[in-house]
Computed example of a mutant assay.
Amino acid sequence: MSNNTTRPDWGKLFASLLTEPGKLGEHYRLFHRYSLGNQAMAVFEMTIRGIPIGPISSFNGWKRLGRRVKKGEKAIALWMPVVKKDAIRKDDGTDEEVTKRFFIMKNNWFALAQTEPIDPENPGTVPIPETPTWDRELALKNLGITEVPFTEVDGNRQGFARPDRAEIAINPLAAMPWKTTFHEMAHCLLHSKQADVAFVDGGHINRSIEEAEAEAVAFLCCATLGLPGLEEARGYVQDWLGSPAQAEEFAKKSVARVFAAADKILKAGSKAGEGVDHE
Rank of each mutant, 00 (worst) to 15 (best):
A245I: 11
L173S: 00
E121F: 07
E130R: 15
E116M: 06
R49Y: 10
I88Q: 01
G269Q: 12
S57D: 15
Q238A: 13
D91M: 04
G61I: 03
P120N: 03
V153G: 00
N122C: 05
I145E: 00
N206P: 05
E213N: 15
G159I: 01
F150G: 06
Q158L: 01
G61A: 01
V43D: 00
P117R: 06
L36D: 08
A247K: 09
N206W: 12
T6C: 00
Q246V: 12
L227V: 11
I209Q: 05
G25S: 15
K84V: 12
V153C: 05
N156W: 08
K179M: 15
F14W: 10
C188N: 08
D263H: 11
Q39S: 04
E26S: 14
E26M: 11
W178A: 06
A251R: 09
I170H: 01
F199N: 14
T180S: 11
E116D: 06
T125D: 07
L143Y: 11
T180R: 05
T6K: 03
V82A: 02
N38H: 11
N142H: 14
R67K: 14
G235K: 13
L190P: 06
F110R: 00
P120R: 06
R136F: 12
V98M: 04
L225K: 09
Q238K: 05
P177L: 01
L65R: 11
A174F: 08
F182Y: 09
L266T: 14
S208V: 13
G11T: 10
T19N: 07
E116V: 12
V255D: 08
S254K: 00
T6N: 09
A75P: 12
T19L: 12
P117H: 08
D239V: 09
Q246T: 09
V153T: 08
A175C: 05
L138W: 02
G61C: 03
A40D: 09
N122R: 14
E184M: 07
E215M: 13
L143S: 07
I205H: 02
L220M: 11
K193P: 01
D277P: 08
R68C: 10
V237G: 03
P129L: 02
S2E: 15
M185K: 05
M80P: 00
G275Q: 13
F182P: 11
S57T: 09
A245P: 02
A175P: 02
E73C: 06
A260N: 11
L30F: 08
T181L: 03
R234T: 15
P21E: 13
L30Q: 05
A175N: 11
K71F: 13
L173F: 00
C188M: 06
W178N: 04
V98F: 03
